[in-house]
Design a protein around this nucleic acid. Structure first.
Lengths: 144, 144
DNA sequence: TTAAGTTGTAACTATTTTGATTACATGTAT
DNA sequence: ATACATGTAATCAAAATAGTTACAACTTAA
């Protein structure tokens, strides 16, 4: 099972809003770039808005970032689009048998390990900003 | 979305086979400790067997580990039970529009970042052995 | 003030995965 | 031969994903 593509779509949306900042970036325009439905885009934009990453207003076409690219990390996007809950990257089977030494203690033994693994992953996301992403997109474009 | 509990159940199974090594550990016994169905246990045991972590034979009750506890990492279990595919912890939306600078390049830009995040998580799993887990389970048991 | 265009959101759908369950063939040992 | 285990397939309900349609609410401009 994979983490929802809402995350990569969220990154795509934010990068494109920035790159396209001289024009108005509507959900329809974004949808044609992402290759999905405008309603899907609007739903994700609603999450990005709720997280304070973008400004969008009913009836008004377009949207813009509320912060500088360098001030938005991929972790911010990841949290915004709600793809992995706090301390819930790994699920642990519940109600193991408390009469068994293993059943009684596995959960408490495993949980901190799973948390550490999740945190290590999230730290990588914290270390990358949208500025890094956009610069890399532009660099790749110039090469090709 | 969370990573399947097959992983935590796999750890539970291996730990219990070891702790119970003086007796025979049947799928029914394991099922009662994990609190699930024996067929579920057998399916996961089949994966652990295929990965070379345990010995089980048709018709013969019980199973044992093929290696020392200290030689089995949680990463081995994680790979065995097939909960996350290689380079596929995060899914990326496909067929973005190649006529858009972002659509054309996001995938290639994002992929290495996602891979790095996944690897960071997996490194934590590599660093923990079943011996660590079993010792912690026993320590918790002695305290309580 | 009406018309056109956009966002916000709900409802519905197909697909996929999970985890549980039942059933039974296959294999082993007494 | 009987009893018991494992191996495995088929089936099911529940949950999440991603797409689609539809429409209300809002804004702007003619």
């Amino acid at each position: 099972m994979s983490i929802s593509s809402r995350f990569s779509v969220g990154i795509h949306i934010l990068a494109l809003i920035n790159i396209n900042k001289e024009s108005t970036t509507t959900s329809e325009f974004l949808a044609s770039s992402v290759n999905t439905n405008p309603a899907v885009i609007r739903k994700i934009m609603g999450m990005l808005k709720k997280a304070g990453l973008i400004e969008v207003r009913p009836g008004i076409a377009g949207s813009k970032l509320t912060k500088e690219l360098a001030e938005i990390t991929l972790f911010d996007v990841y949290k915004a689009v709600n793809v992995v809950q706090e301390n819930d990257l790994f699920s642990i089977h519940d109600n193991p048998n408390p009469l068994c030494i293993v059943g009684k203690n596995v959960q408490n033994t495993i949980e901190p390990i799973f948390t550490a693994a999740q945190v290590a992953m999230e730290k990588v996301l914290i270390s990358v900003t949208l500025e890094d992403v956009v610069k890399d997109i532009e660099a790749k474009e110039n090469i090709s």
